[in-house]
Design a protein around this nucleic acid. Structure first.
Ligand SMILES: [Mn+2]
Ligand SMILES: [Mn+2]
Ligand SMILES: [Zn+2]
Ligand SMILES: [Zn+2]
Lengths: 137, 137
DNA sequence: TACTTTCTTTAGAATCATTATAAACTATAA
DNA sequence: TTATAGTTTATAATGATTCTAAAGAAAGTA
């Protein structure tokens, strides 16, 4: 199949060998219509329970971190004990639903330009992210 | 001293017994001109190293969480392995300096009104916080 | 193809922050 | 003073993440 060739290329270009573990993880993460948010535990469960495959947890961690380093994943800034990753690597913001513990994208153009009236000498801004916490009405 | 009486009252009002451990922690956290950010580890070190006092780590955790619950501390939404607390409990935003791993307040009035053009049915917003990551120029 | 090198995966151990346990201690009220 | 509920503490347990080191697989070379 073609999908796989794409992933093989993607990995090769990144200097990562296209192992079957990495290809499987690519399929789960990137062979979808929509982007999504996940924890390492989520990903591990999808692989073992839904796909009945066995990839060691160490490899899942290694791969997720490698993909993050290459810019194929983003780690999301929030607290709630859990660490979330995002397959949407464009600049965007988030809702965090405290009721469901789920993240929801808030695209950059759904937020009016953020203007910050405070400068810190010798420092430059590397990112500006909004976290909107929501709960049931 | 008067300071202590204030803290005794503060604790009593909150339904927390004014133990010497809690009073000591109050002094460290609230008997300062400026508000500040800290980790449990920071607080623990201030108590043991600067003040040469011995309060068990469990008590420090218990107290910090009790104070948070009472609204005397805020836990800050960010990732960076560390969990930060804030003695500034007013609504405000943060800079996070990746070079120093320190948080810097960004007051609400230093940010122009954030307008979000996305509503989620059945949900209400409980907070909106901005995290501005900065680094050396 | 055969051989070599480098990278990758893996099980299991180690780490580290945080939380739980349960016994000793202490503030408070009767 | 005594009883009660709340608090502190040492210590163990937990759970997410990282480390280790050996076995396995991909890539490069001839
Ligand atoms: Mn990480
Ligand atoms: Mn906490
Ligand atoms: Zn997202
Ligand atoms: Zn702050």
């Amino acid at each position: 199949m073609n999908i796989n060739i794409d992933f093989v290329n993607k990995l090769r270009i990144s200097g990562l060998r296209p192992t079957k573990q990495r290809l499987k993880i690519c399929e789960v993460l990137f062979n979808t219509e929509k982007t999504f948010h996940f924890t390492v535990n989520d990903l591990s469960k999808i692989i073992s329970e839904k796909l009945n495959q066995k990839i060691s947890l160490a490899t899942i961690y290694n791969t997720v971190h490698a993909f993050k380093k290459k810019g194929y994943l983003k780690e999301i800034s929030m607290n709630s004990d859990k660490t979330y990753f995002d397959t949407n690597t464009t600049h965007h913001h988030h809702f965090f639903d405290s009721s469901t513990m789920k993240l929801i994208d808030l695209s950059d153009d759904q937020v009016e330009k953020i203007k910050i009236n405070k400068a810190l000498p010798g420092k430059k801004i590397s990112s500006v992210e909004i976290l909107v916490k929501i709960e049931n009405e």
